[in-house]
Nucleic acid binder design. Structure first.
Lengths: 224, 224
DNA sequence: AGAATACTTCGATAGGGATCAAACCATGCG
DNA sequence: CGCATGGTTTGATCCCTATCGAAGTATTCT
């Protein structure tokens, strides 16, 4: 018998599909609420809550209460590194590499990340917004630039005046490994894209499909 | 719902105590047989066998058949890295740091690693043997030096002439994070230590306790 | 060939944990 | 204050899997 650090305990925490999904969702560095995580994991709220207590007790998560919202986040970079390592092995040994079908390709280009846009398009958009000093970025912190208010007003995107969660947030893109824009502004932009019918959501998938004219419009507004 | 690499599957493989113990035991880089791993994990042979098939199927292990012996080893450095990462988190969040009792201290000094000696004493011994060119070490590969035969004959340790497993092998020490000597030679030396009654095994523990004169004898023979 | 060793498969059991519905707290809004 | 919303707790169900004994297979030793 072998003692030492209880590695089985930690691994079994990650070993449940629901919890694994939650942890993956948190890999972006963005803290999420219990409901969001329940949605992400595909389980009911009580089940998610139970899982979250276990992850908390296991020391894998931190909790930040803001009013009636409780934001769960990864406990630290060491935990993130562990998830990374496990993900790496899973990718390597998972020869279930069904050839990336059209939907997977579409997912890389643009998809929904809970309430905002992710994928290559979203990464490019954030790059451009920072380049034009509309947003000011300092590592993972993103703030509105001086011209942000007028800019977003001009293109018809509402900036939440008194938001309950951050307006801007960097969220690490799973496929591109670079950040895209989350937060209420990210959500508002996705709303705009869907409202203008520049793109539609694929049924039962997170993929977001741009129509040809929609793509042009999006690029003119956000990538110009 | 979230797709991507099946991280829960991999994590749950590590998440069982028996399997976690096996994987920890294999972290030294030394491939072990099913019986050895069963012993290490504290389960019966059939149970161990079942776990090993699962680990194999999960792609975490490799199998090298040598006659009626089947040596299981970690599938590669990526897997080892993952175990390392999990171990790191487990150590960090495990505030169960009961102050190291006397048995734990003894474990650090000297303990049994299946059939050979591990711990500070064992690490020091390997260092000294390499320093004196009795063993020749190249990273994780250890060979007998020219004077090895006469040296070990002189101190009464038999070197297996036609061994079924390697005579020398580097095994990473859990507590010291440096290598000690495994293989048939490592086993023969442990035999010698116990036969000469320089030390005794603690009951129900891997700790090895040297008597004061035994310690002197050991140091004269192996650390001089 | 026969005995012994190393290991796996089969079968049955038992226990743990994941799940959800419903009831229960807590915070914010009007 | 009440009502709605976000979250947790409780309780009951059910499936999954870890476990071991016993029997089966393979390889080496004599």
């Amino acid at each position: 018998m072998r003692e030492g650090p209880d590695i089985a305990r930690i691994a079994s925490l990650v070993g449940d599909p629901a919890r694994a999904n939650m942890l993956s969702a948190l890999m972006g560095g963005t803290a999420l609420t219990a409901s969001e995580l329940a949605l992400e994991a595909g389980v009911s709220l009580p089940t998610a809550s139970s899982h979250l207590s276990k992850l908390m007790e296991g020391g894998l998560l931190t909790l930040a209460s803001q009013g009636r919202h409780r934001y769960y986040g990864l406990a630290g970079p060491q935990v993130a590194g562990m998830i990374e390592a496990i993900t790496g092995v899973a990718e390597a040994v998972g020869p279930k590499r069904v050839r990336p079908g059209p939907r997977d390709a579409a997912m890389r280009v643009a998809r929904v990340c809970y309430d905002h846009l992710a994928g290559e398009q979203a990464v490019a958009m954030l790059d451009r917004l920072v380049e034009k000093d509309i947003l000011l970025r300092n590592d993972n912190e993103i703030r509105l630039g001086p011209s942000a208010a007028s800019h977003f007003a001009a293109i018809g995107v509402d900036i939440d005046a008194r938001p309950r969660r951050p307006v801007c947030r960097a969220c690490l893109d799973w496929s591109v490994r670079r950040s895209h824009l989350a937060g209420t502004l990210g959500a508002a932009i996705l709303d705009k894209i869907l409202a203008e019918k520049w793109a539609r959501r694929e049924k039962d998938s997170r993929a977001v499909i741009f129509s040809p004219p929609g793509k042009q419009a999006f690029e003119r507004v956000f990538l110009a």
